[in-house]
Computed example of a mutant assay.
Amino acid sequence: MRDSATTATAKAVLRRGKWELPALRVPGRRLNFPKLFVGLAAIVIAFIALCAIAPQWVAPYSPTEMMTDILLQSPSAAHPFGTDYFGRDVFSVVVYGARDSLFIGLLSVLVGGLIGGTIGALSGYIGGWFDTTVMRGIDVLMTIPGILLALAIAAALGPSMTNIVLAVAAASIPGYARVMRSQTMSINGRPFITAARSIGVSNFGIFWRHVLPNSLSPLLVMTTIGIGTSILAGSGLSFLGLGLLREIPDWGTLLSQGRGYLTIAWWICTFPGLAITMLVLSVNIVGDWLRDNLDPKKKEA
């Protein structure tokens, strides 16, 4: 009986088209682990967004305040993340550094998704020699590792916010173009597109009203997940010295500055690293949740 019940449960899960972690039953309530993870991830993202928008509401000290009497103090109640080699409160510096890190991730995804999505959509819809020429260029770009391409562009353009965004966005364009091209070609071959052509709708009208709106779901999911990758890439460039040269450093610069003190003051680079990890992990969890809910094949299942 137990084996047959287990088999029936497994078949039911496969028919739904997705695997679910088992729910935890406790007295008086039922906890669903996936929803719990998504909720916690959303809280982390919201908190970091608050740090980026209004850091003065979260940080207990000014990020430029140097308390020379407590240099390299370990984490304590007054300074949860400790202090650095200038006597600055590390927690306050991390809070204020969230703005640049999050801004680089969001803007680079917006630029890369817009350019790459447009190129892929036009290539998939027009087809022919245009599609062949564009996709061969995309194939060439995809042979270059994304971080290496971003590193080359950032080194050539110099350290600035605009250049870092362009470098990270350029590295992500090939992926967005491939996904959007595939989705556009799939939509372009469906019966409602043929029906639209049969009643005389123009090519531009078909593309703008039917193909493009029905192709955006995968791009939306990919851009959501891509925010974490872009934040990692931007932090990596900052860590290598190609980031922003500001009085208040971003998270990648904090990691770079704290690596020399790792053996005597581990907290200087540990907490910025944990902030990057938590943000990227949370964004990926929310992105996976969006993928599961926006995938039309899973909805039909």
Rank of each mutant, 00 (worst) to 15 (best):
A49P: 07
G128H: 10
T277W: 05
N203F: 00
T9W: 13
F47H: 02
A5D: 15
L151M: 13
P249K: 07
R25L: 14
R99Q: 14
W289K: 08
S235P: 06
C51I: 05
G241Y: 01
M66K: 15
S172I: 01
L148N: 01
A52P: 12
I53Q: 03
L106A: 15
I70Y: 11
T68G: 09
P22H: 13
A46R: 02
S235L: 07
I231Y: 09
A177Q: 04
A196C: 08
L114P: 08
W19E: 14
A155P: 03
L281Y: 08
L148H: 02
R29H: 14
S217G: 13
W251D: 12
Y61W: 07
P272M: 08
F271N: 02
G226P: 13
S217F: 12
A196G: 10
I119Y: 15
H210G: 05
P60C: 07
D131L: 04
D295V: 03
G226Q: 11
F207S: 02
A169H: 01
L244H: 05
A59T: 09
A49E: 07
G189E: 04
K18D: 12
A121F: 13
A49T: 15
A41I: 00
W266M: 08
K297M: 13
V90N: 00
G39A: 10
M1N: 09
Y176V: 03
V90A: 06
A150N: 09
L240K: 07
I119W: 13
S92L: 01
V26D: 07
A59P: 08
V94I: 10
L149I: 02
L149D: 00
I276K: 04
T64L: 15
A301H: 08
T223H: 00
P60H: 07
M67K: 10
A5H: 14
K35Q: 14
